[in-house]
Write a protein that binds this DNA or RNA. Structure first.
Lengths: 214, 214
DNA sequence: ACCTGAACACCGTTCAAGT
DNA sequence: ACCTGAACACCGTTCAAGT
């Protein structure tokens, strides 16, 4: 009974069974890969299982149903957006510059990962209350904007008031711009630099609207 | 051959065959009804056909595939949004008031028909170039905002510049707010009046940002 | 021209069974 | 505890056939 200690298993098709959590992680990575390569429409529980090399039913040991897999994938996507926004906030800059950089970072991240933005609007995720972890990730990302606005208020470059309400307007702007560009609703020259410029202008216009100067 | 003139057919299960265009219209209505009642996730070509009382394959005489049915339904949804925005623009008011009313109307329409807003982000509609009629509907709705901004420019309440670019920022704001509220990403008191107020504040902030006064 | 029957590969999900 | 086999109802889509 001393034989066969728990060994590292090959990535693709493990000979035996997964440890607790490993298959969950593998399915999640597979799901994100499918979303990125083939689009949200191609994501299915079966497809993810197939890619991992496991039977479709095995997924049900780790996710209650398809919507839970989607929610977990969406949560990682939102965490990625929040990380991009935090990285963009250079402490050496002024609060106003940081605000602009954070907003542009949101849009840039979405343009770099369009499929992930689409994932967030999957109909299976309509009921956010069913996915508290996803909701928490949103709240965390939203907090980055709230903090940026509060910093602006402290230096008197944004007028005082409910920072959360102001952040909602900011969140709407960056999410709206990102969505329009990714969804191709509005004709903009396809060049990435032009798209970023549209985002920057929108964020600046918003900032002007929030400005303390009148 | 004078017998059997074209008669009105019963709504539910026509005894014979549909005239040209009738089944198309019926499928479209069924699709919109399903979206409204059961959500975008429940919309399938088969479900629409079943509701009309026709075999699933019959749909293929009127829509090339599922994405064409979705695109046609989405087009009607966008036309509805545009109509709401036009109705909200009271010619007796100032250009600034009209701009605000149009923006709020977009959000109010989305809140009244949340499933239709979701429909617009269906993965099957990702490639807008494949659906020129849908693209045209978007362009038409977008034009309402552009015209409102141009009117503001003429009266010198919005600073001069590319009205289309300014309209993109406005479109992003209203779409973003509508999406946040419908998707429940951000916690706002569920009351409809509060939601409309959030929308109004965001539109006002944006308008201030676009304002000619400095 | 427009609709149905039959058929295909594919899904999400459940249940019983294996180790 | 975790995975597979078998099975169910359901899809989108195609083809051949009917009128």
């Amino acid at each position: 009974m001393l034989g066969s200690p728990p060994r590292r298993r090959p990535r693709k098709k493990p000979a035996g069974q997964y440890h607790h959590g490993e298959l969950r992680r593998a399915l999640l990575d597979a799901a994100l890969g499918i979303v990125e390569r083939e689009g949200t429409g191609a994501l299915s529980l079966s497809a993810a299982a197939r890619r991992v090399g496991v039977s479709p039913q095995a997924s049900y040991n780790h996710f209650r149903d398809k919507s839970e897999l989607l929610a977990a994938a969406a949560e990682e996507a939102v965490r990625g957006i929040a990380a991009s926004m935090r990285e963009a906030a250079n402490p050496a800059e002024s609060p106003g510059e940081r605000f602009e950089a954070i907003g542009v970072a949101y849009v840039a991240h979405a343009l770099a990962h369009p499929a992930k933005l689409r994932l967030l609007s999957a109909p299976e995720l309509a009921d956010k209350q069913r996915h508290p972890a996803l909701l928490a990730a949103y709240e965390d990302a939203f907090g980055v904007l709230v903090a940026a606005i509060e910093a602006c208020q402290r230096e008197n470059v944004v007028r005082e008031g409910d920072a959360r309400k102001q952040a909602i307007a900011a969140w709407a702007t960056v999410h709206g711009i990102a969505w329009l560009l990714v969804d191709g609703q509005i004709a903009v020259s396809g060049a990435r630099s032009d798209e970023t410029e549209v985002a920057r202008e929108a964020v600046r216009t918003l900032f002007k609207g929030l400005s303390a100067r009148r």
